Amino acid sequence: MSVSPMETIFNVFNETADILKEELSCTYLEALAETSENFFQGDVLQTELSEVTKKRLLKKYSEIKLESYTNETIRKAFQLAILKGMKDSSQPNHQMTPDSIGLFMGYLISKFLEKHSAVTILDPAVGTGNLIFTILNHLDAKEANAFGVDIDELLIQLAYDGANLQQQPIQLFNQDALEPLFIDPVDVVVSDLPVGYYPNDEGASKYTLKADTGHSYAHHLFIEQSMGHTKPGGYLFFLIPNGLFESPEAPNLHRYLKETADIQGILQLPLSMFQNPGSAKSILILQKKGLGVQPPKQVLLANLPSLSNQQGMQSIIEKLDQWLAENKA
């Protein structure tokens, strides 16, 4: 039975991560980060390993030449290995944005920024980088520079390894994204918003969207932080919970958005994508206010069909093209 290029790369990641997991007594995800770094450097960097283990690993690494594969093939293989590791990990923040959403967001960004030959992109909750790499891999015609922030050291290490393996231009910052960021404003912010409460009340107090009492919503603060790092007229593409505008803090969010941005569109993702209807999400598209920036004549609203439904998606794409012609010409 023939093995696909993606499976060929995955098998090498997987087998070498398993060897390192055993030898270093660490988790699969930690071992995956170690093996990816080895792969990129073309060497075995773990000095505590025996010569026999080193030879086993080098033999495995020599089985594939990354330059003969596309970035998307490498990304998918690496993602598959990360997903395997996440199944063993019980950490709730170790979750990945599905590929189909990343592909569609990449399509939206290329449409909204059609006139840009170069773009700067920020993901303030970059995780393993899967969302931003999916987008970067589909902005072929554009020169792109990306920035990613995440507080989780292991996730940012995996994002760093993924960037190296795909040779993607991205600067990564391992910090709390709601603390001050030393990143210049960008053309586009994209984020699968971390939903929940932000435990640092003192840090939250600097934000307009802080709660009057108790902990503030992290996802609201992420929106405000993102807005502060977007150029006037720049775009923000957020994956939001469907109930974002129905929470007790929603009136504050409404007020804030009215002052700072124009809502361009809300695209509800199919419920079939989510195990629990309560965790269903939509894509919120905002444009930051600025000189000469006109609000759309009408907000783009749509319920997306299953992303594998080609006919349904074709009609959404036609609707989007018509909306862009009427509102963004």
Rank of each mutant, 00 (worst) to 15 (best):
V189Q: 11
Q311I: 15
N327Y: 06
T230F: 01
Y28L: 08
Q311R: 11
T260C: 03
P5K: 10
S306V: 04
L80Q: 05
D43S: 09
S279F: 10
Y160I: 00
M105Q: 14
D18C: 13
A302G: 00
G278F: 11
L66Y: 06
Q41K: 10
L304Q: 02
Q91S: 07
A159N: 00
N200L: 15
E67P: 13
L80I: 00
A163R: 00
L244C: 09
F237P: 01
P199E: 14
K84V: 10
T70N: 14
L267A: 00
L269F: 03
V190L: 09
A141L: 12
L108V: 04
T47G: 02
L136T: 13
N130A: 02
A141K: 14
E72K: 13
P241G: 10
K54T: 03
A77C: 06
K288N: 01
P180W: 13
K210M: 04
L324S: 06
I101T: 01
Q264T: 01
S117G: 02
S89D: 10
Q91D: 06
N145P: 04
D176N: 15
E318R: 14
Y207D: 05
F10K: 06
F78E: 00
F133V: 13
Y235R: 02
L131Y: 09
I82C: 04
L24S: 08
D18G: 13
K289H: 14
N130K: 03
N200C: 13
E143M: 05
F245H: 12
G42R: 11
H116F: 11
K60T: 08
Y61E: 05
I183K: 11
F238R: 08
S36T: 06
E7Q: 07
L324H: 03
L324A: 03
L284V: 07
P232N: 07
N93Q: 06
K288I: 01
K288P: 01
P124F: 08
T230N: 01
G290C: 09
A163V: 08
H215V: 09
E259H: 08
F133T: 09
I74K: 08
Q311G: 09
E259C: 04
F10E: 04
K55P: 00
Q171D: 14
G234Q: 01
L66I: 15
Y28T: 05
N309D: 15
K87N: 00
A177K: 10
Q171C: 11
D123H: 13
T53Q: 06
F13Y: 10
V12W: 05
Q79M: 05
E318W: 09
A204H: 03
K55F: 04
M96S: 02
P277N: 08
G203E: 15
